[in-house]
């Protein structure tokens, strides 16, 4: 089902904030090879999907920035833009109690 961010709770309030991240095919053929190249361990989990919370955000953000910079260097603008949306969204959750699903 393509890969997307689904924010379920922010500071105890239930939400359904949704952000598409990548199609399944692009994730498999474009994202994952770069993740392997950069030895990333969090982002590959998005393919199957998982539930995360505020404690995971710094680790995920660190990898997302590496990935975004890599795709920027390859002039992959569409993927870079998707990553920028996701980084911005996760940064907005910093300091909050949150539960979100990425997958």
């Amino acid at each position: 089902m393509s890969v997307a961010l689904l924010i379920e709770k922010i500071d105890g309030t239930v939400t359904r904030d949704y952000l598409p991240i990548s199609g399944e095919l692009s994730f498999k053929t474009e994202w994952l090879p770069v993740c392997r190249l950069l030895h990333l361990k969090w982002i590959p989990l998005f393919q199957t999907g998982g539930t995360f919370d505020e404690n995971d955000i710094p680790f995920i953000l660190e990898e997302l920035v590496l990935l975004r910079d890599h795709f920027a260097s390859l002039e992959k603008e569409k993927i870079k833009t998707r990553l920028s949306y996701l980084i911005k969204k996760l940064e907005s959750l910093k300091g909050k109690s949150t539960v979100f699903f990425i997958g």
Binding site: M1, E24, L25, Q47, T48
Partner: peptide, 13 residues
Amino acid sequence: EDKSALGLNNINP
């Protein structure tokens, strides 16, 4: 909709 479920037992680091 294609979906990978092969990593369903993945462990949260």
